[in-house]
């Protein structure tokens, strides 16, 4: 555990809590892609199957359970509790275009051809692209509420901090997880365009981020 890794996990947690609180307080999930949230719930489910097989640390177990619980709570709020506010019209990204290549890739590239390893690889690849329905929705509607952009900012920050963590671990422990690093870098690139808009529009004090 290093400072980048811890800060990365904290910003991931902050992102998820921001989104959950936004939906809960406004009693609405307008502008939120339910598809992205479903994909994130699938990411956590397939990655954290090792909760049942190996014990790493109390921190590891608690964070995994928290991430799973919060992601399922978010999906519940969007699709059950506040489903009348869910904007399915604009959440029209075709998820099969992500799932099919990701499933294919995880069968081609993995550390071992075992169910656990293939599912872990699937979750890593899927996480890299899971935000795309949300970014697509923002592009389609042309705007995002500032609280939604704060959520995306912390999610992107988490990815960037994980890269710093890998650089640190490579130099201090010689640790290098090829699958995680490559897809983590790809994932972070998706946020670059958004980061630019966030800094130029939202931070400069506008309540909504509109696309040019």
């Amino acid at each position: 555990m290093n400072v980048f890794r811890l800060a990365g996990d904290v910003s991931h947690l902050v992102a998820i809590i921001i989104l959950l609180l936004k939906i809960w307080r406004s009693r609405s999930c307008a502008g939120i892609s339910g598809k992205s949230q479903l994909l994130f719930a699938l990411v956590f489910t397939t990655r954290y199957l090792d909760l049942f097989t190996v014990y790493i640390s109390a921190y590891n177990t608690i964070m995994k359970v928290v991430f799973l619980a919060l992601s399922y709570a978010t999906v519940y709020l969007i699709y059950m509790r506040f489903r009348n506010t869910y904007d399915s019209e604009n959440d029209s990204f075709r998820v099969e275009f992500l799932l099919v290549p990701v499933i294919g890739l995880s069968f081609l590239e993995h550390y071992a051809f075992t169910p656990m390893e293939v599912l872990w690889t699937f979750s890593i690849f899927l996480e890299a692209v899971a935000i795309m329905p949300q970014l697509f929705m923002i592009t389609k509607t042309g705007e995002a509420e500032s609280i939604t952009t704060h959520y995306l900012f912390f999610l992107g920050l988490y990815r960037a901090l994980y890269i710093a963590n890998w650089v640190w671990r490579y130099h201090t422990e010689g640790f290098f997880d090829q699958i995680a690093v490559v897809s983590g870098v790809v994932q972070t690139i998706f946020y670059c365009d958004f980061f630019y808009l966030y800094v130029t529009k939202v931070v400069q004090g506008r309540s909504k981020m509109s696309l040019p």
Binding site: Y111, A112, E117, N165
Partner: peptide, 10 residues
Amino acid sequence: CPIGTTKDEL
């Protein structure tokens, strides 16, 4: 990480 090592990252 190499095969068999535990995945300690989230």
